[in-house]
Structures are given as C-alpha cells and as structure tokens.
Write a protein that binds this DNA or RNA. Structure first.
Lengths: 213, 213
DNA sequence: TGAGGAACGGAATGTTTCGTTCCGTTCGAC
DNA sequence: GTCGAACGGAACGAAACATTCCGTTCCTCA
C-alpha cells in the first residue's frame, strides 16, 4: 500500500488547516448567501469549526466579507473568460449566464455590497468583469442572435432575477434557476417585440457600492 | 366657501389617526421591503410618527408583520381578480403579472415568511390566490398563447425574479422590472424550445411557511 | 524523542441593537 | 371647561453579536 506523499498532503495539522481555509470560505458563502446579516458564529458552526479558526484567518467580519466578495468577483471573471472561449457567439453568451447562475456568484457581489469598504483591486476586477460581459453581449448581438435592444446592464437584471430563486435543496435550486434562465434566453433571442422603457445605464447599479447612507 | 362634511373628514384628531393608519402601513411596507430585518423604529421614523403610534395599533412587531403580509396577500388576490376580468386570455395573464410586479406585492409575502405565525384566514387567502393564478395560467395555455410546458408554480419564479430587481428610485425600479418582465413574457409565449428540468411542484414553495428551524 | 508553537474550541466580555414600556403633553370631542 | 384618545420620545431590560482570551491538542522540527 503506497503512502501518498503528493503535493497536497492529506494528513497533518498544516493540511487540515489548509483544508479549513476552503471549508470556511465555502461555509461563509453558503451562510451569507442565505442571510447577508448572519452572525459570524453561524459561519463557524456551518463550517464545523470554532470561532477562533475564523479570527485566525480574518481580521474581522468586514475582512471576511470583503474576501468572500472578492472571491466571488474572481469566479465571475473566470466564468466570463471560460465562456468567451466558446466560438459560437450565442453559445458563449448563454454559457456564460449558465456558469454564473450555477456558481451562484452574482448574489455574492450584490447583497454584500455596502457591508465593507472595497479594495482597489476589487475595483479593477469589477471593471474587467464589466468589459468581459460587454464583449459577450456585443458578440451575440452583432451575430444577430441577441435582440438588438438588449444592453450589457440588462445582464445584471437577469442574473439578479435568477439568483433570487432559492429553495432549501441546492441541486433543486440550480435546476429551477436553469429553467428560469431558459425562459429568459428564449425571450432574449431574436426576434421579439421591442423592450419597454429606457435601457439600464452604466452608472445605475453601482449605488450599492457608494458610501453607506 | 362650503365646508366639507363628507364621510372622511380632513381635519380633527380622529381623521389624523385614520390617516396615520395608512401612513404607517405604507411606511412598514417600504421599510420591510427594503430590509426584512429592519427594526420597528425605522418604520416609525419613515412614517414620521413616534413609536407609540405603532404600538397603539399593533400588539408587537410580529403583529405588524402579519398584518402587512396579510395586506399584501389581499392585494395579490385583488390583482389576480382584476386581471381575470380581461377577456383576452393572454392579456389577462400578462396584465396580472404587470399588476403584481408594479405593486411589489410578491416580495412581501415571501421575504417576511417565517417571521410570524400565519392566521387561518391567511391560509385561505393563499389558497384562493393560487387558484386564481392557476386559472390565469390555464386560460393562457389553453388559448395556445402560453407555452404548454409552463406550470402555475413557474409564475412564482418569475415574480420572485422581478421583485429582486431594485434601484434606489421606485419609479425607475418599476421601469426596470417591466423591462425584465417583457423579456420573460417574450420567452413565455409560444413557440419556444422545451424548458429543461422537472417543472416546479405545488409543495415546493411553502417551505418558507413551515415551522421555523 | 522532547520542546515549542501553530491551530483550535469555546467560554467570557463588552458593546450595540432592538422590542417594549412608561410618562408627560397636546388638543379635539363632548 | 374637562376628559381622554392619540402621540412623541426617553428609558429600560433583554437579546444578539463581534471580538478577545485562555486552556488544550498534537503536528513539526531539531
């Protein structure tokens, strides 16, 4: 029986700690997704660790929330980059939405806004995310697959709508979101009647990030 | 100059109190829509009254939340009844969604669930609401306007998605929701590719109302 | 193999938030 | 002119919560 000595050691105190890093962040994601005002103790309980395991890693609640949100932003960017690699313009657009909805990454960057002061690096990531989405929307629209009156900011509305769907079972939640997304994609494809009202503008959704109160 | 002596007198202590009834309920709606965990003092402040004006009317926070939710349920039913009067099957369905989205009535009955123990009367109203929606969906589907694989419970998903859209300005919020709803309606109309996954079931959305924890 | 300390669990603490009560005041009703 | 309904807001007590602290475990490294 060979003893595993690979790069990620499976036993030992350091390994346990490294694994806790991920466990805690995952628990925090689940907890704050469920209730943005949840106490920090709920995260510890969900992760199955003590409170000190949290404070060893993060300076405080705000630091945890910031890290969590930053992580979500990076996942968002990664999803957009992966989807952009798809050659078919519509598949790239639809695949992007599916990835983001499946990963439940949008609510993280939205419902936690205002609970911490963002870093400059997060600002850069947000700009990059916006550029990527803009590219995907542009491709699908230029290819004549996406209705021409859809703007980049509409994607935020879609994602927020999908993220609002939630049932106790995570798998079922994903299924229902996909179903909802399918309706949206059907409504997004050409042809269709013109959309009412002025389209959402660029500066219309960063109010969550502006100084609190 | 004739003196108004009609049924709702515009001056006097009683009249002021009667007006406060509505003011307080409206303030509570706005506050708890914005933050389901908001303190009661926030409602008083928003309504421009003291705290005692609240406690004169409601036994406590739970009583206020229950009343608020009950009120929302009644508005929901009223919207469904009004919409059902429309002869065109699709217009009835679409009009219903527009009314509920405009009145922002769905989030009230959803995000407040679990914060109070519901009354039997609310249960009856909920059943009635479900029957009405069922009727509207059935009409639109039987008329061949609504895609046949849409079930009544899908409406809950749509409404939740629309309600999740929120910007500081209420009017703009309504515009954006209408825009989002237009995409959804376009995706809901026949024809369209089949929707993925098993459709939502009847008992899949009352988990919010089941005993807390 | 033994000492040192990284990692941790969870009780303790101090503070803030919040629901509710209480009291003094106002002013229309009768 | 008197009574009390309606009210504003301070005061109170309890609960929630972020953070700190201390004792324990057990890997790590020499």
């Amino acid at each position: 029986m060979p003893k595993p000595t690979d790069s990620p050691p499976l036993a030992g105190r350091r390994a346990q700690a490294a694994r806790n890093d991920a466990t805690i962040l995952a628990a925090a994601r689940a907890v704050f997704l469920d209730d943005p005002k949840a106490p920090i103790a709920a995260v510890a309980e969900r992760a199955g660790v003590g409170i000190s395991a949290l404070y060893r890693r993060y300076a405080g609640k705000e630091d945890l929330l910031r890290t969590l949100c930053h992580d979500g932003l990076l996942r968002f960017v990664a999803a957009a980059e992966e989807a952009a690699a798809e050659p078919d313009d519509w598949a790239a657009f639809a695949g992007f939405l599916e990835r983001v909805v499946d990963a439940d990454v949008h609510s993280l960057t939205v419902h936690l806004a205002g609970t911490f002061t963002p870093t400059e690096e997060m600002g850069r990531a947000a700009v990059r995310a916006n550029e990527l989405v803009d590219g995907l929307v542009g491709r699908a629209r230029d290819a004549g697959r996406l209705r021409p009156d859809v703007v980049t900011q509409d994607v935020g509305l879609l994602l927020e709508g999908c993220a609002a769907i939630r049932v106790p079972d995570p798998d079922r939640t994903r299924q229902l979101r996909r179903r909802h997304l399918a309706v949206l994609l059907a409504g997004l494809a050409v042809p269709g009647p013109p959309l009412p009202g002025p389209p959402p503008g660029v500066g219309e959704f960063d109010w969550r990030w502006r100084p609190k109160q």
